[in-house]
């Protein structure tokens, strides 16, 4: 029992790291970077304690947040193409001419 416990104690952190590395590569590094970037755009701006009050800053960051969300939605909408005729069924004529 102790041997198993010792074995698990040594191997589980290694497995943990291995699986993390595996998950990182399988999900695609570029995608991860992109999602981090897009999140960064949505993050609230840090508070500035000079001219504006805290409430102004909170309001501004909320508006910026909202604008970013609506802009994302606009981009999503642009991507929807209803007139894509490449997905129409193929016009394959099965009737053929038997050579005379």
């Amino acid at each position: 029992m102790k041997k198993i416990q010792k074995f698990l104690m040594v191997t589980s952190p290694i497995f943990f790291l291995l699986i993390l590395v595996l998950a990182y590569y399988l999900t695609g590094t570029n995608q991860t970077k992109l999602s981090i970037q897009s999140k960064a755009n949505v993050l609230p701006t840090p508070f500035v304690f000079f001219e504006k009050t805290n409430e102004d800053n909170i309001f501004n960051s909320q508006t910026a947040n909202l604008k970013a969300k609506l802009a994302d939605l606009s981009t999503d909408l642009e991507k929807i193409n209803f007139q894509d005729e490449s997905v129409f069924p193929p016009d394959l004529d099965f009737q053929f001419q038997i050579p005379e």
Partner: peptide, 10 residues
């Protein structure tokens, strides 16, 4: 504790 946490993480 380390073992338990790493196991959960795993």
């Amino acid at each position: 504790r380390i073992f338990f946490l790493s196991f959960l993480g795993f």
